[in-house]
Amino acid sequence: MTDDKAERAIRMIENCSDAKKLRQFAANARREGLEAVARAAELRLYEVLPKEKPGSFEHDVWRSIYALEGSLTSERGKTTRLGRTRPKIAQLGELETVKDLILRKKASEGFFMLIDRHMAELTFEAVALRHPAKFDDPVLEVAAARLRSVGIEIDRLQRN
């Protein structure tokens, strides 16, 4: 695929809201060795999968979950679900789950997995910073410090 075709594919992906088509875009691009196109398709997929209103806190939480699950599924070749996070959300809700994971002494495994996959904007810490009205200052301070500790500029993560 030429650069022009790749650019056209990325533009099509940006306007696509069909999860099945986005998965196919990603699979085709990966098969052709076009990682940038595959990544664009996957990131768009994580944007359209949540049923919650785009831009909402809940949408951002589920976008994070789908991103980590999607990455792990792709890498492992088998469906992978976050077996502790999903039940915790079912029990406590998105807000309390995010607070709890941020306030732990050590960052969650999911935090490092998303950082390692260059998806810092999808960590729960970044989600909290984009929705500061939902959190107390100590939560926001820990979230910002944790992101800074791994070299992430928090200014670019806030309210995109």
Rank of each mutant, 00 (worst) to 15 (best):
G110F: 02
K51C: 02
R63A: 11
A107C: 13
E109S: 10
T73E: 07
R44H: 09
R86G: 12
E94L: 09
S74K: 04
Y66A: 04
K105C: 10
E109F: 10
G77M: 01
R63P: 04
E42V: 07
F57P: 13
R63G: 09
F112V: 05
A120W: 02
E94V: 05
Y46R: 07
R117P: 04
L95H: 15
F57W: 05
E47H: 13
G93L: 01
K99S: 11
L82G: 15
E96D: 03
L43K: 10
E69T: 06
K106F: 03
T80A: 12
P50L: 00
P50W: 04
A107R: 13
K99D: 07
H59M: 04
F112S: 13
R81A: 11
K99P: 04
K53N: 14
M113E: 02
A67M: 01
L43E: 00
E96S: 14
G70P: 03
M119D: 11
E109G: 13
G55Y: 06
S56G: 15
K51R: 00
A41Q: 05
G93H: 03
K51V: 09
L72P: 05
I115Q: 12
L82E: 06
K51S: 10
L49N: 12
F112E: 01
R44K: 14
K53M: 02
M119Y: 01
E69L: 03
E47Q: 07
E58W: 06
E52G: 11
L114E: 11
R117F: 01
H118G: 10
K106M: 06
T97S: 05
D100L: 10
Y66F: 08
K105E: 00
A90S: 14
G93R: 09
E69Q: 05
R86H: 09
L72S: 14
S108V: 06
A107L: 01
E121I: 07
D116S: 00
P50S: 11
G77K: 09
L101T: 05
R76P: 02
R84K: 12
E75K: 15
H59R: 10
A41N: 08
G110W: 00
F111N: 09
E42C: 08
L122A: 05
E69K: 01
S74T: 05
T80H: 12
E96C: 14
S71K: 00
Y46P: 04
E109P: 00
M119E: 09
F57R: 06
M119V: 03
F111C: 06
R76T: 15
